[in-house]
């Protein structure tokens, strides 16, 4: 595999691409891995030079996405192995990390990974309390206490069996 996450100036060889994160670090990625991202594929089709600058994806997130792309571009791996890689990939990751991942995969249009991450986030959310969800999504509660009570009353059906419980 051509992929490396070594830092420092890189020169893209044929069939590879350099991707620069918003922190300025550069990653060497095989073209076969890069084109699994619909956005990167489009960029590569349109421009000559092999350096792509992603101004809104940080180092840590980019490295994870590239690891995913490289694994999925590896023809030597069976589909089963790739599937179990996907499960491993999201398991145990903090919600905050998943937020950056879902945003990055949405920007890069890596549909499969975006799906896996969004599903994982939904699974985590399922049993949490309102306060937890507000905190993790940085949601400012802009209801008045009266309005909130009214919503709870109106939508009582959604709360019947104590959804969004704390862990």
């Amino acid at each position: 595999m051509v992929t490396t996450d070594e830092k420092g100036p890189l020169t893209a060889k044929k069939k590879s691409v350099i991707i620069r994160s918003c922190d300025g670090d550069e990653f060497l990625v095989s073209e076969s891995a890069a084109v699994l991202s619909t956005s990167l594929k489009k960029i590569l089709e349109e421009k000559e030079d092999r350096l792509i600058h992603l101004s809104d994806i940080d180092n840590k997130t980019l490295a994870m996405v590239i690891a995913y792309l490289s694994t999925h571009a590896d023809d030597g791996l069976s589909d089963d192995l790739k599937r179990s890689f996907d499960q491993e990939f999201v398991s145990g990751k903090e919600f905050d990390v998943l937020k950056y991942l879902v945003l990055a995969t949405d920007t890069l249009q890596v549909t499969c990974l975006c799906y896996t991450v969004a599903k994982k986030m939904a699974d985590i959310m399922k049993n949490k309390l309102v306060e937890w969800v507000r905190r993790e999504f940085d949601i400012q509660n802009d209801y008045t206490p009266e309005a909130e009570a009214e919503i709870r009353r109106l939508d009582a059906w959604a709360w019947d069996d104590r959804q969004l419980e704390d862990d």
């Binding site: 959310m125 507000r134 509660n141 959804q163 969004l164």
Partner: peptide, 17 residues
């Protein structure tokens, strides 16, 4: 993300803001 939740739970998120 909400599309992966049962409607009952996704609807409950209207309480958030």
């Amino acid at each position: 993300i909400l599309s992966f939740l049962p409607t009952k739970i996704s609807a409950a998120t209207s309480i958030l803001s």
